[in-house]
């Protein structure tokens, strides 16, 4: 390990509203340590080199979803991406793509926050819940489990060219979360979610690039959720067309 350089250059995209017309790249030398994530490098900059650098972070264990960034061109959680993997560097750190930049590495995700409630990501149950728990076997839970793992980190939106070109698109995470409840044995809300999920801005906007599932750090597979819902939506549309009212569902 004698030849390992002791520092690495981080090329960080800066954008200071009112000051910068367009984003500029600023380089910083940070220590290269085995344990350091890209986030540790940014914290070193913030604490010791330049207090004006802004970015979001919190749990530093890949579960809160705050610290999504574009690292060497790929959407990543900066707390779960390590500097040594980019040695000898430089490592490029940019804000997540496809979102407006508020400042430096901080992007505006209010579009997602507005879309999320539209898919009604909560349990809709006809009638009163049982006295005790709903029975749900481990097998029934497996039906939706992976879609419930979404941490809302926005990496999938950043990876999705459809979202880049068609900002109306509900997007991978929101659709996956709608599906998460549709596939839950305790839920009766699939009909309530259909108008939104099966719309032109819903699953039908997706052309299956598949990058959302590649980018997802939690194995949610939003692309799979979307393709699966397309089939569901197509079948129910067909049923609506062919069957008399009473026999639908």
């Amino acid at each position: 390990m004698k030849n390992t350089p002791k520092t690495i250059t981080m090329q960080v995209t800066r954008f200071r509203p009112g000051e910068d017309e367009a984003p500029v790249v600023q380089s910083y030398e940070v220590p290269l340590r085995k344990e350091w994530a890209v986030l540790d490098g940014l914290n070193h900059i913030k604490d010791h080199l330049d207090g004006t650098l802004s970015y979001r972070w919190s749990c530093r264990m890949g579960i809160c979803g705050s610290c999504g960034m574009t690292v060497n061109g790929k959407p990543q959680l900066s707390c779960a991406t390590f500097l040594t993997d980019y040695a000898p560097g430089p490592v490029r750190v940019e804000p997540l793509r496809n979102f407006p930049v508020i400042r430096d590495l901080v992007v505006d995700i209010s579009d997602f926050m507005e879309k999320l409630p539209k898919v009604k990501p909560w349990l809709i149950h006809d009638g009163e819940p049982p006295e005790g728990e709903f029975l749900q076997t481990p097998r029934e839970m497996d039906e939706y489990k992976k879609y419930s793992m979404c941490i809302n980190c926005m990496l999938c939106y950043s990876a999705c060219p459809v979202y880049a070109l068609e900002p109306e698109f509900l997007g991978p995470a929101a659709i996956a979360l709608g599906q998460r409840y549709n596939l839950d044995s305790r839920d009766d809300g699939a009909e309530d979610r259909r108008d939104v999920l099966a719309s032109a801005a819903g699953v039908w906007a997706c052309t299956f690039v598949g990058e959302c599932s590649t980018a997802c750090p939690k194995g949610v597979d939003p692309a799979g959720a979307i393709q699966r819902y397309k089939l569901t939506a197509a079948v129910s549309a067909l049923k609506d067309y062919l069957l008399p009212r009473g026999a639908r569902r």
């Binding site: 149950h125 728990e133 076997t137 029934e140 409840y181």
Partner: peptide
């Protein structure tokens, strides 16, 4: 905790479907 279960929290289950 039951209230959360009714709201969809994926509590781990026994084979028969109980908490």
């Amino acid at each position: 905790l039951l209230r959360l279960e009714h709201q969809g929290c994926p509590w781990s289950r026994q084979p028969d479907g109980r908490i």
